[in-house]
């Protein structure tokens, strides 16, 4: 896989309400469900393509995606 930009996925677990909208839409499975409580968790950060679908759809302000270099 060609090396593109790298992204950091920041999850505010206490904001997440387990609605599943984010990971059901993630095109690369970078994020997934925590089987314990169905909250979002990181599956493989390297897979994140920075499309922001999860960030924009999250109704709970629980996910933020950053470009790796802007930290």
């Amino acid at each position: 896989m060609a090396k593109g930009k790298k992204y950091i996925i920041k999850i505010k677990e206490d904001y997440c309400k387990s609605c599943r909208l984010c990971y059901s839409r993630c095109p690369t499975n970078a994020i997934t469900a925590n089987p314990k409580n169905m909250k979002v968790q990181i599956n493989d950060e390297d897979k994140c393509i920075g499309c922001l679908v999860c960030e924009n759809i999250c109704p709970d302000f629980a996910i933020e995606i950053f470009e790796a270099e802007d930290n």
Partner: peptide, 13 residues
Amino acid sequence: FPHIWCSGCGNGI
């Protein structure tokens, strides 16, 4: 925060 709306409510969006 977290806000009052139900899990998955579009209001947050």
